[in-house]
Design a protein around this nucleic acid. Structure first.
Lengths: 393, 393
DNA sequence: CCCATTTGTTATGCGGCTTTATGAAATGCT
DNA sequence: AGCATTTCATAAAGCCGCATAACAAATGGG
């Protein structure tokens, strides 16, 4: 069999050579959670001897571990395996503008540790404060690292800004500000991703877009953003700017000259509230304090509030129609403070379908953890690439 | 080696079993044109014995054939191979609204036969006339089929309408009208694709978008359309409606209510000419006859014409900006009658970049054959799937 | 307690490939 | 012409990853 390269365990650490079926078995355990040998064998159509060899390889490296024996209405007990500590873990950080959320998890998404830090004030943009918070939270989590979690494979960070790969020009990106106070360790892979894209990934893994090959996640709140998944892959774009729907041509009509970023300004919460205040009748009920107030009163059937909300929903419907016209995702998931309001859903649905092709519109069901769960998934994917990397030559 | 299943040649026709390396060799010949054994061997990192075996398999099936010996500044001559007649051929048809173009080609894109039929009048939509023309052209081509071209593997047809796969609802599609007079033979695979998508494929293979992983082909003429290629794959959308930019929300501005399909109407050639006529000054030069006239006179620096063209170009720039904002393709190729005018290019470039992220804008360099070349490529791809299909169980 | 049933291990073989060795053909130098 | 050199093709041997087959071990039911 040629195990000579494994005779001194721990020596050839990163260059772990695995047989293809061992890789498949590991992937199955990561995706499907704890399973017995025959379960995996049947799922992957592998023979029992091959399973034996694969599990042997993985167990020797600590990538999997036996966690018991299981059931069998008849016959011998089957051994139950799961991803082992040797496979390591990941840290996922949602570096939001109002809070920093952190999760430490195994490659099969078992939560090892979790923290949340609320930033003192609401910052609109990536800045030093966030960088400092990330550094502190990461350091705090690192001290809690228990032995037995294995090596840290990847650090994923979700950012509220455009994110570009190493190749492209990153001048206009704010992503570098993250590192003013936070110095990531050298070993683990660093995974940066836009927070809206992360939310889309989370919807795809845990939410209403579960398993969908094609859909768009559209976030409507203070700012606008879209995460696109087409053909099962996240669409990032050449400059990491895919999904910047705030830059749709707007106003786009005869006699008007579009202004850069105006769609975001007009459809964002601030401009909405300004319009609401301007159009508010003189009569008794005073104009709403903020967007939350507006939607709450609209739900109570307060006429003026309702009218404003419905008009805004129609605008959003037009926005969604534009997205549908370009990529025809088949499903649009609405997220963000305004996007998740139950009032706007039927109107957006109606307008979008009237203006473009058939599209399902649903409201995001994931809570505030969506972003951190999405970046965790991406970090795990990256970690798997490393763990299961085949030797290059 | 186990060649028993090949002992009676021609018997196991469709279930040709090929080794993985033989498949790779065949693919290399298809993609790279005629090559010598050592060239392929080096490119695929295959040993000479493996090359020998692979070529042997392929030659026995007629999939490749020796077409000579070649070069060598020193040493023995190398045998030169190319895709053989046994691999078969494809028929590609551009069923346009003004003409039907047909090409018969081998899997390595050697042109075997070509015809063009100009429809008597300009039909806007898929209709019986086109179906009849397709049937006639296909039948005429079939009679010319020379022995030695091998089996017909696939028929590709580019349609000026939405195209959906077998699964989705095709009610609102006009694609079925194609078959009112044209009955395709049962054997070969049928490949249907939207004509704009085909043009995009052609740009990707032969044109200015050669080898690009991400770009958008935007056609501006009587109608508007976009072919999207992201991550090296054509984006078709859930209902085959991706790229229907004519359905962008328009007019999209405060106080306006968008109308379905209005972007196409407004930015299409007819509406443009109507506006031009309405705005034309009373003075001597009479308003232009048609779009061609308008652009010709604009190029001659006729002030009124120039003004109109520039305003239209700015509108198109806004349209392009919307596409860029959503998918950030990095490159936009302009096609179609209006899109290829050299006058609009710099303005579109400027407006698109001002409104959204960095994007290259280029003019299509492929002539009227673009669509048929694109569908030919897609038909060949499909044919390869068939020829190189591995036995399922 | 024996037996059917399921799980895990060991032995053997096969397909697809590589490497090594050997033979054949074309070229330049003497 | 004869020869070394270079390149291409074939033959033989062996590796790697997997499957099949046969056997050993564990478990519950008559």
């Amino acid at each position: 069999m040629g195990f000579s390269h494994l005779s001194r365990p721990g020596e050839s650490f990163s260059a772990a050579e695995l047989t293809p079926s061992a890789r498949a078995v590991f992937r199955s355990l990561v995706a499907g959670g704890p399973s017995t040998r025959p379960q995996i064998g049947e799922q992957l159509a592998l023979s029992r001897p091959t399973m034996s060899a694969s599990i042997g390889e993985l167990e020797r490296l600590g990538y999997v571990e036996k966690i018991g024996e299981s059931q069998g209405s008849l016959g011998r007990k089957a051994a139950l395996y799961r991803v082992g500590a040797g496979a390591g873990h990941v840290v996922a950080i949602d570096a939001g503008s109002t809070h920093v959320r952190l999760r430490v998890a195994t490659l099969d998404h078992r939560l090892l540790h979790s923290r949340t830090y609320r930033l003192p004030t609401s910052h609109r943009l990536m800045n030093e404060e966030i960088s400092r918070a990330v550094a502190e939270e990461f350091a705090a989590a690192a001290t809690e690292t228990e032995a037995g979690w294995g090596p840290l494979r990847a650090i994923g960070i979700a950012l509220p800004s455009r994110v570009v790969g190493d190749g492209a020009e990153r001048a206009s990106t704010r992503q570098d500000e993250l590192f003013t106070h936070f110095a990531p360790p050298a070993g683990p892979k660093l995974v940066l991703e836009n927070n809206v894209n992360c939310a889309a990934v989370a919807e795809n893994v845990y939410g209403v877009a579960q398993g969908r090959q094609d859909f768009a996640y559209i976030q409507i709140g203070l700012k606008l953003g879209m995460g696109l998944m087409l053909g099962g892959r996240l669409i990032r774009g050449r400059n990491g700017a895919a999904g910047e729907i705030g830059h749709l041509a707007y106003p786009f009509a005869p006699g008007h000259t579009p202004v850069a970023g105006e769609a975001e300004t007009y459809l964002g919460t601030e401009a909405l509230m300004q319009r609401v205040r301007d159009a508010w009748p003189e009569a008794p009920p005073p104009p709403p304090e903020d967007a939350g107030d507006l939607f709450a009163r609209a739900e109570k059937d307060e006429v003026a509030a309702r009218e404003q909300v419905e008009r805004h929903a129609a605008d959003i419907g037009a926005l969604v129609a534009s997205c549908v016209a370009l990529v025809d995702p088949g499903l649009v998931v609405l997220g963000g403070g305004v996007g998740t309001s139950p009032l706007i859903l039927p109107i957006v649905r109606k307008v979008a379908n009237a203006l473009s092709y058939a599209v399902s519109v649903e409201t995001s069901s994931l809570g505030p953890d969506a972003t951190v769960l999405g970046i965790e998934k991406l970090a795990v994917d990256r970690a798997l690439d490393v763990v299961l990397a085949q030797p290059s030559p």
